[in-house]
Amino acid sequence: MANASPQQGFWGDLRHDMPAAIGLCVILLIVLAAVFAPLLAPYDPAAQSLIKRLAPPVWMTRGSWDHVLGTDNLGRDVLSRVIWGARVTLLIGAATCLIAATLGTLVGLWAGYRGGRTDSVLMRLVDIQISFPGILLILLVVGVIGPGVGTLIGVLAITNWMVYARLVRGIVSSTRQTAHVEAAEIVGCRPSRVIFRHILPNLVSPLLTLLILEFTNIVLAEAAVSFLGFGVQPPQTSWGLDVASGRDYLFIAWWLVTFPGLAIVATVLSINLFAGWLRVTTDPEEREKRFARSLAARRRRAVRKGANT
């Protein structure tokens, strides 16, 4: 990584980890589907057609190419709904993660930098909120305030900022002791300069990894809350919502529940595959471990081959 250009290192390294490379491709596909949904989707996701109700996917006997993944109980095209669903899911995930990460990072920076009483009060607050009953409180809040995308983003962000605060605070309080931060303080840098110029860069890679992993948690949480009927509301589309509405047709139309669910699985799985690789690659210690493991595996293989011949 040190002698190659970072770009080359990134792609070259990723090539050696097939699952991670496939993961990244699937992520890009889903993002593209979300961005270009109006162009890609063959039908309006809300367009109903009562004569084409519950058409099966194309490879089944009654299926046709008109509706590749079939239609739902109102004759809406399942493929189009899955494509449009990517939009809502990614939007909610990204917005929630950004708000939660910003809030958590600010709190973590403040607590870690100030130390002392500020630190213990803020971190106690984090401890307390981490023990809150997550989804139940979300249901209570949504039940009282009323469902909607805005409410959902707000509530998910407020229930998820603590992990970022913990991570940032831990790194800040350890980097505060390092020589370069002390030097910056001694030459008289203002606290804001020390924080943003000398401490924040140390946070980029762990924060990025956490952000990506948290994104999958938000996707799953949004799907669950929407499935329960307290998240995204019709006429908007969401994968969780579509699984819920397909539930009543479980006995006669398996495709209604299966495909939106598969979209969730594909999203979360590919992000996790990519994030696992990213975590190892951006962490020097983990890189070394990975190198040692591959060396050991190679040696074992060589030994076994020697024993066989």
Binding site: G240, L250, G261, V265
Partner: peptide, 9 residues
């Protein structure tokens, strides 16, 4: 990666 509600169904 699998949501519980989907696996259950």
């Amino acid at each position: 990666a699998m949501p519980q509600f989907w696996l259950g169904l």
